[in-house]
Design a protein around this nucleic acid. Structure first.
Ligand SMILES: [Zn+2]
Length: 298
DNA sequence: CGTCTTTGACCCGCGC
DNA sequence: GCGCGGGTCAAAGACG
């Protein structure tokens, strides 16, 4: 609960329609645990997304908010099993949220070279001190209400780790883009009180179109709103030497509509990402635009 | 046979 | 200096 959500350097904010200030309030040093609690709490109360919500967001030109929600997905679907809720081919996903923080650091994303130095005793060796500030990439957190993990966002991910979250339940999965030369990482976590809520945190940006869904004909895959959010939510920062192209709208090439033909993609471009400056955790982010409207219960 | 998941060990920054 | 907690690697297994 230290630097997971509220970090002074990296900021990743989960938004909702409730007391987000607790989370965003980075200046508060008293409630560290509260932070996590608030986080969970926030998720816990999360299932009250309403149509007006999106409108509100749309009306607010402040922070970025990507919200996608599926109308046909009633909040009544509450599952208690961590994973027993495998509902293939029916991943309704309503998601809200987001936020991200950008950083200007373009080199050491830290390409580990431990494979080269196989000393003998220690396997993992990384005496490279060249790295000053690791992990300076933009994070893009985003909540999704879905029963299933592994929301297809148009990219292929390889799971490289899984750890349990401390303050709350359910393990957190770490994924990485399988495409070579792409160090985009993804982190998927579930809520404690609401297993139906999945928090996905993207890190980095792809530099290639989606490897999957090549032909015009392809079904079965349910592209969740995640991809739209991910695609749009990413504030195109500096363009690396890669052949970056208008993938920003990568959702177009994807022929969704098979499974998720009824998703409302509501996103909002952020006007400015906050700077992780040590100075100040400016308030008035999403909290400002996210009052506590539409109260719904399951 | 290739790909991706599983899973324990390990690294590393930080607080005590 | 040690323990904690989050993040990562890599070997082995599962899956097609
Ligand atoms: Zn990628």
């Amino acid at each position: 609960m230290e630097d997971v959500l509220g970090n002074s350097s990296c900021s990743q904010y989960m938004v909702n329609n409730l007391p987000l200030q607790s989370i965003f309030d980075l200046s508060s040093s008293e409630d560290e645990k509260i932070r996590s609690l608030g986080f969970m709490d926030l998720l816990g109360v999360q299932d009250l997304i309403g149509p007006p919500f999106l409108e509100i967001i749309a009306a607010q030109p402040s922070p970025s908010l990507i919200s996608t929600q599926v109308p046909p997905a009633p909040p009544s679907m509450k599952i208690e099993s961590p994973e027993a809720i495998n509902q293939p081919a029916t991943p309704n996903s309503s998601s809200i949220s987001s936020a991200s923080s950008e950083a200007f650091n373009d080199e050491p994303v830290k390409v580990d070279d431990r494979e080269e130095n196989q000393q003998k005793t220690k396997k993992q060796l990384k005496p490279k001190k060249t790295n000053q500030k690791r992990q300076r990439e933009p994070r893009f957190a985003f909540m999704t209400k879905s029963e299933v993990d592994h929301l297809e966002d148009g990219y292929r991910w390889r799971k490289y780790g899984q750890k349990a979250v401390k303050n709350s339940s359910f393990p957190r999965s770490y994924y990485r883009c399988t495409t070579a030369s792409c160090n985009v990482k993804k982190r998927v976590e579930r809520s404690f009180n609401d297993p139906s809520i999945v928090v996905t945190t993207y890190e980095g940006q792809h530099s290639h179109p989606s490897p999957i869904m090549p032909g015009p004909n392809l079904g079965g895959s349910h592209l969740s709103s995640a991809m739209s959010a991910a695609a749009i939510g990413m504030p195109m920062q500096r363009t690396p030497p890669h052949h970056q192209q208008p993938f920003t709208n990568s959702l177009s090439p994807l022929n969704f509509g098979h499974n998720i033909g009824s998703i409302n993609n509501n996103f909002l471009q952020e006007r400015g990402i906050f700077n992780p400056g040590p100075a100040g955790p400016s308030h008035g982010l999403l909290q400002d635009i996210l009052p506590s409207y539409m109260l719904k219960e399951e």
